[in-house]
Amino acid sequence: GIQEIVAMSPELDTYSITKRVKEVLTDNNLGQRLFGESILGLTQGSVSDLLSRPKPWHKLSLKGREPFVRMQLWLNDPHNVEKLRDMKK
Rank of each mutant, 00 (worst) to 15 (best):
G1F: 11
Q3M: 13
E4A: 11
E4Q: 12
I5K: 14
V6A: 10
V6H: 08
V6N: 09
V6G: 09
A7S: 14
A7E: 13
A7R: 14
A7H: 11
M8F: 09
M8P: 06
M8G: 14
S9H: 15
S9P: 07
S9F: 07
P10K: 12
P10G: 13
L12P: 04
D13M: 00
D13A: 02
D13T: 01
D13N: 11
T14F: 03
Y15I: 14
Y15W: 08
S16Q: 14
S16G: 12
S16K: 14
I17R: 03
T18C: 09
T18I: 11
T18M: 02
T18H: 01
K19D: 05
K19H: 06
R20W: 00
R20P: 02
V21P: 02
V21R: 00
K22Q: 14
K22I: 12
E23L: 08
L25G: 01
L25F: 03
L25H: 01
T26R: 12
T26D: 15
D27C: 13
N28S: 05
N29H: 02
N29P: 04
L30T: 02
L30D: 00
L30V: 09
G31N: 13
G31F: 00
G31T: 13
Q32K: 10
Q32E: 14
Q32F: 15
R33S: 13
L34D: 15
F35V: 00
F35A: 00
F35G: 02
G36M: 09
G36L: 11
E37N: 13
E37I: 11
E37K: 04
S38C: 14
S38V: 12
S38W: 08
S38D: 06
S38E: 13
S38M: 15
I39R: 01
I39A: 02
I39P: 03
L40P: 03
L42F: 05
T43Y: 14
T43P: 15
Q44V: 11
Q44E: 11
Q44I: 10
Q44C: 12
Q44D: 14
Q44T: 12
G45K: 13
V47H: 03
V47P: 08
V47C: 10
S48T: 14
D49F: 10
L50P: 00
L50M: 13
L50E: 01
L50R: 02
S52A: 10
S52I: 05
S52G: 09
R53S: 11
P54A: 02
P54N: 00
P54E: 01
K55Q: 10
K55I: 06
K55A: 12
P56C: 05
P56T: 03
W57H: 02
H58M: 05
H58C: 15
H58P: 11
K59F: 05
K59Q: 11
K59N: 11
L60S: 02
L60E: 03
L60I: 01
L60A: 00
S61Q: 02
S61R: 02
L62F: 12
L62C: 07
K63E: 12
K63Y: 04
G64C: 03
R65N: 06
P67Q: 15
F68N: 07
F68W: 07
F68E: 04
V69E: 08
M71Q: 01
Q72S: 08
L73N: 10
L73W: 11
W74P: 01
W74E: 01
W74A: 01
L75Y: 02
N76R: 10
N76V: 07
D77T: 05
D77E: 08
D77L: 02
D77P: 01
P78A: 07
P78E: 10
H79L: 12
H79I: 05
H79D: 13
H79F: 13
H79T: 13
H79W: 10
N80T: 04
N80H: 09
N80D: 00
N80A: 14
V81G: 02
V81K: 03
V81M: 04
V81P: 03
E82Y: 06
E82A: 13
K83H: 06
K83P: 01
K83V: 09
L84G: 01
L84P: 00
R85G: 08
M87E: 14
M87C: 13
K88E: 12
K88Y: 06
K89A: 10
K89Y: 09
K89I: 10
